[in-house]
């Protein structure tokens, strides 16, 4: 066990995956000499060579499209998309090709491709550098979508994603890159929690608070603050957004009877919306109150000095908790802001 940041844990996970399987190749912009704009691939090109850590031309569709050809040839490409908002040029190759190839070929062609995407806001960045595009990918059959929140999960889940024979969209919340914790980078993948499983990040009794990625830290802070007022919040870190581990989530909601879900992305047709819909179907008889979503607004991502008004923070999450507990007086606000 070594103490390291989430960024270093991702780097350790990549190194381990490349050592374990010489068919793993990394592709992306600035990932070689520079080590990536977030240094996640730092030192890997020097260690494994230019064939296995490829600086690519600036063409995201090109990165994904050539990764498909490499997968056809038996390789396991790990593609880095530099920022969340830069993934859209590759969207067709991801949803029309990567996602469908296995089904299209009756399982004869596998697409063990991992697409790493730094995600989300809270870092005061420029336009297109703070987005939360998870729902676009979760809506597409054939993809697995995960989002990590801590160094150990980052390391282990990245290794699991690379080892998976399915394509995995792997979100790395930028605001968590510098969070430090103890990490074992050699965990046996078969013994670690499955890639598709959720995690109870903090047990509680009164409210289930579901979130993932960048907001897990905020949710834990909110749970701590609520404890002072005598409210016990169970925080569920979804980890996997497609598929969602509904066994874990429904068990928690059936215990607490109240659910708040928080996400950075806009509300319309989002992960939060889908999870609330499923929980309403499967836990209706257990619910004491209507589920509450605490989300970004349905707006283009705002400039840095306004992002605090877009991103759910501790206060907005606690306001959602108060709503689900029936503590908010009628204000005319229809849903949780």
């Amino acid at each position: 066990m070594t103490t390291m940041t989430m960024g270093k844990a991702l780097n350790a996970g990549l190194r381990r995956a490349m050592t374990d399987d010489d068919r793993v190749v990394l592709m992306g912009e600035d990932i070689g000499t520079l080590g990536g704009v977030y240094r996640i691939t730092d030192g890997l090109q020097a260690e494994f060579g230019e064939r296995r850590v490829m600086d690519t031309p600036l063409a995201e569709a090109g990165i994904l499209g050539t990764a498909i050809g490499l997968a056809y040839r038996g390789y396991r490409p790990v593609c880095e998309i530099q920022f969340d908002g830069f993934v859209y040029p590759a969207f067709d190759q991801i949803v029309s090709q990567v996602a469908k190839m296995h089904a299209r070929t009756h399982g004869l062609v596998r697409m063990p491709i991992t697409v790493r995407i730094p995600v989300g806001g809270g870092i005061g960045a420029a336009e297109h550098h703070s987005e939360s595009p998870e729902a676009y990918f979760a809506h597409t059959a054939g993809l697995r979508v995960v989002s990590v929140s801590n160094p150990q999960d980052a390391c282990t889940m990245l290794r699991q994603a690379i080892a998976s024979d399915d394509p995995v969209i792997f979100f790395e919340p930028k605001r968590r890159y510098h969070v430090k914790a103890e990490v074992d980078d050699a965990v046996a993948l078969t013994e670690a929690p499955a890639l598709g499983s959720a995690r109870i990040a903090r047990p509680g009794e009164h409210v289930t608070l579901i979130t993932w990625g960048g907001l897990v830290g905020v949710a834990l802070d909110a749970a701590l603050a609520a404890e002072d007022e005598g409210t016990s919040i169970e925080v569920v870190d979804l980890r996997s957004l497609s598929p969602v581990d509904y066994d874990t989530v429904t068990a928690s909601v059936r215990r607490t009877g109240r659910v708040v879900i928080a996400q950075e992305g806009p509300r319309e047709a989002s992960i939060a919306s889908e999870v609330v819909a499923v929980l309403t179907e499967r836990c209706f008889a257990f619910l004491e109150a209507a589920p509450v979503r605490v989300t970004g607004h349905d707006i283009p991502y705002p400039p840095a000095r306004l992002e605090k008004h877009h991103l759910p923070d501790l206060d907005r999450i606690l306001y959602g908790v108060d709503r689900v507990l029936g503590r908010v007086r009628e204000t005319g606000v229809e849903v949780s802001p």
Binding site: G62, G65, T66, A67, G69, L70, Y72, R73, Q97
Partner: peptide
């Protein structure tokens, strides 16, 4: 692109 990636392989 798939052909090009295959050729890189």
């Amino acid at each position: 692109l798939h052909a090009t990636g295959y050729a890189m392989g």
